[in-house]
């Protein structure tokens, strides 16, 4: 396997009991690249993402080959995967507020996350300031509790943690679905800037085809746990080969489509 890919997946299979939940024949992600994984509920898109992060429960069986930043996340023991998670690949979830401990100030939350990866003291403070500014948050946010910030700010903060930890890949699971559209655009811009300025790779799981089409270089369309179509975003969206992709495209309500 080549080193230049941040994420490299071959024949990933996730099963639960005798049910196959997700299967990805091939997926690569290079630096500064964005791969969108698109599908509806039950398509296995989130499960695939969690498998890459080693976050699936014991009752799931994962097979195949998956390397994240050079580490085999399927074969490696839990400690190794945990080290990769956070410092190399970070998860950004749909409900930012719900994923933050409500009893801690945001600054404390971030300090803890850094301390877990061995960064403390002034170095941690610098990193925090830098990470917050990179996602467009004022430093004062660090003194607030999760419920005192808006959904958009909480989501930016989630991304800031990834930046502070030095993650090379952001795995974002419906990062903007719970946000208002005017807020969504800002969060997407932050992700785009991190790709351009820091070469971060972005795995974007979403049901929003239009959103994915504006961000992703390549797209995987999933349905019932299978990848039904993959390719560059342009080709998949302009000339979909699979019926389901066509159905999805037709179903997306887009502005200016009527009349």
């Amino acid at each position: 396997m080549s080193v230049e890919h941040l994420v490299e997946v071959r024949d990933l299979q996730v099963t639960h009991g005798d049910r196959r939940i997700a299967s990805i024949p091939e997926l690569t992600l290079a630096a500064a690249e964005c791969v969108g994984i698109v599908g509806e509920s039950g398509s296995g898109k989130t499960t695939s993402l969690l498998a890459l992060l080693g976050l699936l429960g014991r009752d799931f069986h994962v097979s195949g080959a998956a390397r994240v930043c050079g580490v085999d996340v399927i074969g490696a023991d839990e400690r190794e995967v945990a080290a990769v998670r956070g410092s190399r690949i970070a998860l950004v979830m749909q409900n930012p507020q719900g994923s933050l401990n409500p009893t801690m100030r945001l600054g404390t939350l971030m300090k803890r996350a850094l301390a877990q990866h061995g960064v403390k003291g002034p170095a941690a403070r610098n990193r925090i300031a830098e990470a917050l500014s990179s996602v467009g948050l004022p430093e004062g946010v660090a003194r607030r509790y999760p419920h005192q910030v808006s959904g958009g700010q909480a989501q930016r903060f989630g991304i800031a943690i990834a930046v502070a930890l030095g993650a090379e890949v952001i795995a974002a699971d419906e990062p903007t679905s719970a946000l208002d559209v005017t807020v969504q655009a800002g969060v997407v811009h932050v992700l785009q800037r991190l790709r351009a300025e820091r070469g971060m790779g972005l795995l974007l799981v979403s049901h929003d085809l239009a959103l994915v089409s504006t961000v992703a270089d390549r797209v995987l369309v999933m349905r019932h746990g299978e990848v039904v179509e993959s390719g560059t975003a342009r080709s998949v969206l302009a000339a979909p080969a699979h019926d389901y992709t066509r159905e999805l495209l037709a179903a997306v309500p887009t502005l200016g489509a009527a009349g």
Partner: peptide
């Protein structure tokens, strides 16, 4: 702010509070 299929990334006004 609504992303359009295959369109450019929507514009945002930076720095404005919500």
């Amino acid at each position: 702010a609504v992303p359009t299929m295959g369109g450019a990334l929507p514009e945002v006004v930076e720095g404005a509070t919500a």
